[in-house]
Design a protein around this nucleic acid. Structure first.
Length: 564
RNA sequence: GCACCGGUAGCUCAGCGGAUUAGAGCACUUGUCUUCGGAACAAGGGGUCGUAGGUUCGAAUCCUACCCGGUGUACCA
């Protein structure tokens, strides 16, 4: 679908390009200038030299010559051609796009039509505690997945889990100690205590490994036994712990309202990993050094990393190569997104460099994205549950805060989820997140609940209205101008968010729309208007506003409650 | 040491393919309110955009150096 505002921008660019005799791609059309208040603007500085005229003169000249029927005003101001659009034209344009919804939902596009995209994110490891970072990663990954879907791609959500390795040995070591101390068998651990039990075991094992030489040796030995599956009792503990872990993952996903199509286990990638590395040795991509198979990254300005260790066991590096192949075998992806913490940035550069030398087509299709750590504003929340804050504890905390200020809300859960997801997604991906419960669930301002509230207000009016909305030729839409402009601008914002893989632009837009709507709400009494034509025209706009709230919040994984 | 990421209002952050008077939320000050749901709206104060140079008619945005913080740097993930 071609969107109204895009068409206007194109038309304007074509006009300017023709009038000035400059290439069309050199004409920049900016959208929405807050200072001037114009809807579109063309900076004329770049043309000054070529035309031998001042930017302001060029803009003034254009202001006279440019013909844009959708514009209500065209003025030259300090070197810019500024354009204000006619509210009625905006309403008609937006209506036209909405009525074509059967083919493409308003806001969606077909930029990635026929593309197969595999998104990998969250990646919690069994035997390790779930923490707030997993919630963050999941929220970001889910939003990225939804952005791709909005652009027409076929998206497959997958996750990857380290089911073997030292962290498992540390966890199981801790489990054994805890069982001994409590005189329990695995089956004695109560169902609702399992996650916590595993979490404590891991922390116990890890600190013992780091601080106690005997324990370290025991854990190393245990690791071999787990790998060889040589001890029946240990196997039993492993199987139970593995299941409990995945049950806990499922609980978290369920709470967040997400699901994965497939989970890959690290142990499954070993065979392919070995094969790929063997192939790489032949191609001289890898070499053997000190008994280990390594990739010399220094030749490419990167680090050297080990792919097969000196015991002959593939490392995470090799397994990631194997995983790339497995994913491709399963999905024949055009794009593979891997979302991890940013401490793995340089690691992935090495892995992808190696992959590019072996299978360039896979490397080119792979995008490693990374996010920062979740940290807490000083003194917040940490007292209640220590440093590792699990997903459910986080949500419970937020719910408690919501209870204080909005008791008896029928949508506490939805509000709390929105608060957390929005707090994560309103920031650009990459940097650390300083998470502040008080601020994130603030009832005012740039927050999930604020936007939900605005949307609920819209639906409340739509429900109370005794009639459906209908666009009008007679109505001037002056009061709805800001809302209409935001609606018109929305599809391009989605396209940009997909392009940049930047959910925060969507979050910013939702907030702008909520502010504009709340402001409109104060000024205009909708339902009490006697004029049916006006009433219906306004309701039609509201229906569209609601649809865009639903769409944009949907891209963030946030739902709109019926009431709150 | 080297590499990567970050340093914008008291706090948390947008803006960074240069361009019209540096933005938002929170906090602070002041208004609106017998409301189609005040979890709201209207307005105000507050910034040498880490530092110093450079490129440009024009730099938070590009280049260089430095300072501060985080992370990574061969058999962990």
């Amino acid at each position: 679908m071609s969107y109204f505002l895009d068409e206007v921008k194109q038309k304007l660019a074509r006009d300017v390009s023709g009038l000035l005799d400059v290439p069309k791609d050199q004409v920049v059309v900016q959208v929405a200038n807050e200072k001037i208040g114009s809807d579109l603007a063309v900076p004329c500085f770049a043309f000054a030299q070529k035309l031998g005229k001042s930017p302001q003169d060029i803009a003034e000249d254009l202001a006279v010559k440019v013909k844009l029927p959708e514009a209500s005003e065209i003025t030259a101001i300090s070197g810019f051609l500024n354009i204000w659009l006619e509210p009625k034209a905006l309403a008609q344009g937006v209506n036209k796009n909405f009525s074509a919804e059967k083919s493409v939902k308003y806001g969606n596009n077909s930029d990635n039509a026929n593309q197969v995209v595999v998104t990998e994110y969250t990646d919690p490891n069994p035997f390790k505690p779930l923490h707030i970072g997993h919630v963050y990663s999941n929220t970001v990954g889910e939003s990225i997945s939804r952005l791709y879907e909005a652009s027409g791609a076929e998206v497959h959500r997958i996750s990857y889990h380290g089911d073997v390795g030292l962290h498992v040995a540390m966890g199981i070591w801790g489990i054994i100690k805890q069982l001994e101390a409590s005189d329990w068998k695995m089956s004695d651990v109560p169902a609702d205590y399992r996650s916590e039990f595993l979490g404590k075991a891991y922390v116990h094992g890890r600190s013992a490994y780091e601080g106690n030489a005997t324990a370290k040796q025991e854990i190393t030995e245990l690791n071999k036994q787990i790998y060889a599956k040589s001890d029946k009792e240990i196997n039993g503990i492993y199987e139970a712990g593995h299941k409990w872990s995945f049950d806990a993952f499922d609980d978290m996903y369920k709470m967040l309202g997400v699901s994965f199509e497939k989970s890959y286990l690290e142990s499954e990638t070993v065979d392919v990993a070995k094969k790929v590395v063997a192939e790489g040795i032949k191609k001289k991509v890898f070499e053997v050094s000190d008994g280990a198979t390594i990739f010399k990254g220094e030749e490419y300005g990167l680090h050297t990393r080990v792919f097969i260790n000196s015991l002959g066991i593939p490392t995470y590096e090799a397994k990631d190569l194997g995983l790339a192949h497995l994913k491709h075998k399963d999905y024949k992806y055009d794009t593979s997104i891997i979302l991890t913490g940013n401490e793995q940035d340089q690691y992935f550069e090495v892995v992808l460099k190696a992959l590019s030398l072996l299978h360039p087509e896979l490397a080119e299709a792979t995008i490693h994205m990374s996010h920062g750590m979740v940290r807490f504003a000083e003194g917040k929340m940490s007292s209640r549950s220590g440093n590792a804050i699990t997903a459910d504890v986080l949500i419970e905390n937020v719910e408690e805060e919501l209870e204080k200020t909005a008791p008896n809300s029928p949508a506490i859960k939805e509000n709390a989820l929105a608060a957390v997801k929005y707090a994560f997604l309103k920031q650009s991906i990459g940097g650390d997140i300083i998470f502040d419960v008080d601020q994130s669930i603030s009832l005012e301002g740039n927050s999930g609940p604020y936007i939900q509230y605005a949307a609920v207000r819209v639906s409340s009016i739509l429900t109370k209205a005794k009639t459906k909305g209908q666009a009008s030729d007679k109505y001037d839409y002056e009061a709805e101008k800001t809302l209409l402009f935001l609606l018109a601008a929305y599809p391009a914002i989605v396209a940009e968010a997909v392009n940049m893989l930047a959910p925060h632009t969507i979050a910013g837009f939702s907030f702008e729309l909520a502010k504009a709507w709340n402001s409109y709400y104060e000024k205009v009494q909708i339902l009490s208007d006697k004029d049916q034509d006006t009433l219906k025209a306004r309701l039609a706009v509201l229906e569209q506003v609601y649809a865009v709230f639903e769409h944009s919040l949907g891209l963030l994984g946030i739902t709109i409650p019926e009431k709150m």
